[in-house]
Amino acid sequence: MARPPGADRPLYVRIAMSLKSRILAGHYAPGQRLPGEDDLAAAMGASRSTVRQALTELRDTGYVTSRRGSGSYVADPLPIEPLSPRSGPVYTGFLDDLDNEAHHVVERDRVQEELLADEALAARLKVPVGAPVVRYRATRLRHGVPYGVATDVLPRAVADRITPDVLDASPTIVDALALAGSRVAESLQRLEPAVLDAADARRCGTSAGDPALAITGTAYDAGRAPIDAYTLTVVTGYGIGLHLTRATTADGSD
């Protein structure tokens, strides 16, 4: 199930987000034909015209292609890399929801260093192995209380646009990217259990070996170029809420 956006979002957008979540989770593979409009309309409890609008939205954003007389297919390649290895469910939502929450978030004790991309980072950022990248690490606080450690790795060309004055004025690296003209437009992340190492435990005032939650992902700009390979390690005791709402049509049906 996708995480439906708020009630102000049109139903076709909700359906597009639901289909996108299934594509990114691997339920529909790149190149695979999607169910027909009638089948999707029946499954989604919506009209065929609404489903057609949703498919248009996915075509416009590069997730779906159409073949005359054959139907709609998952794009190959996709505009962003799906989670690999295949994850559990992918919940979709809107970055502006997180932007609102981020008003209460700041980073402190930020450390910046230059690295050379290993194979894993090169694949995530689509740069050559050995390409220069810049890593930022900081303690993340919400309402002044430490709740985790943020690690952001940016391609050198992207990091070079984050000048010292931009960095000083930015509560988080995501804010710095936006101020530097590389606003995050899309992001895909996975959540996995983790254990705090000694360095992260010191930053958060906890103990090494304590359980944690690692949120690892890749952020993309409006041109679908990867600009940030990030990990947020969240300490135990910090709760994340998930609000699920079933989308309904104007006549009250699902």
Score class of each variant (00 low, 15 high):
109 D>W: 04
211 P>V: 12
28 Y>V: 04
109 D>H: 06
135 R>N: 06
9 R>M: 10
205 G>R: 04
104 H>P: 01
147 Y>H: 15
120 A>M: 08
190 R>L: 09
138 A>P: 07
122 A>Y: 03
181 G>E: 05
27 H>G: 09
188 L>Y: 12
60 D>E: 15
189 Q>S: 13
84 S>L: 11
115 L>N: 13
54 A>P: 10
25 A>W: 14
86 R>H: 06
62 G>H: 12
202 R>D: 15
87 S>F: 07
130 G>C: 03
67 R>K: 14
224 R>Q: 09
185 A>W: 00
182 S>A: 12
250 A>P: 00
133 V>H: 01
59 R>H: 05
154 L>F: 01
59 R>V: 15
162 I>Y: 02
92 T>I: 06
135 R>W: 01
114 E>C: 02
5 P>L: 07
254 D>C: 10
130 G>L: 03
209 G>Y: 13
149 V>Y: 05
94 F>A: 10
72 S>E: 09
175 D>R: 14
230 Y>T: 01
221 D>I: 02
213 L>T: 14
108 R>I: 13
29 A>W: 12
37 E>Y: 00
94 F>V: 01
199 A>K: 04
228 D>G: 02
216 T>N: 09
175 D>P: 08
192 E>C: 11
27 H>M: 04
12 Y>T: 14
52 R>Y: 00
94 F>W: 11
194 A>I: 08
166 V>P: 02
15 I>N: 06
130 G>N: 05
247 A>E: 05
91 Y>F: 13
165 D>C: 11
18 S>N: 11
90 V>A: 04
167 L>V: 07
182 S>I: 00
230 Y>D: 01
252 G>I: 15
15 I>S: 06
47 S>C: 03
199 A>C: 08
172 T>E: 08
144 G>L: 08
196 L>Y: 07
120 A>H: 13
234 V>W: 00
101 E>R: 04
